[in-house]
Amino acid sequence: MTSHRTFRRSFDSIQDIFAFSAEVFASERIEPSLLPSVDLTLEELFTNMVKYTASTAAVRIDMTKVAGGVEVTLTDYDVGPFDVTQAPDADIDRPIEQREPGGLGLHLIRRLVDCVQYEYSAESRQSRITFRKTQAGATTSDRGTVAGSADAHD
């Protein structure tokens, strides 16, 4: 079953988005250990929409239980194209003197979820970002195991 809700384009909506994801995880009995990665991905994608687009339209979020996890789609209205899957990774090997806050959001989500897809319709000026998080593609901490490097999903 798919659950959906729309959220005002504001940082103040983040708590409501977290409440929505927690509600869907509970009602659909989705593995709770996947929730932090899903919340982080939702926050990063949603805050990018708030920061970098001039649209005032609300953002729609759909969540669907899939085998072993969840699939989430964010739909953004009245926006130009920006393919989040093509954004470069952050250079995390720089010394601290050369690092500045920012630029880590998309870098992180590529490592936390199984896959991210981007679609854009120029006709309707609508973008859709879909990501999937499952136990099969879970990171080390999602599985609750100890030691070893976490799986990366580039």
Binding site: P36, L40, I92, L104
Partner: peptide, 28 residues
């Protein structure tokens, strides 16, 4: 660090450890 101090992080859970490693924060 600019004034010879630093911030240490203690009691970090597994999920946060992953985030810190992915961000390169384990090096700084």
């Amino acid at each position: 660090m600019g004034s010879a101090g630093k911030l240490r992080l203690s009691g970090v859970n597994r999920h946060l450890q992953d985030i810190f490693v992915y961000s390169g924060f384990d090096k700084i």
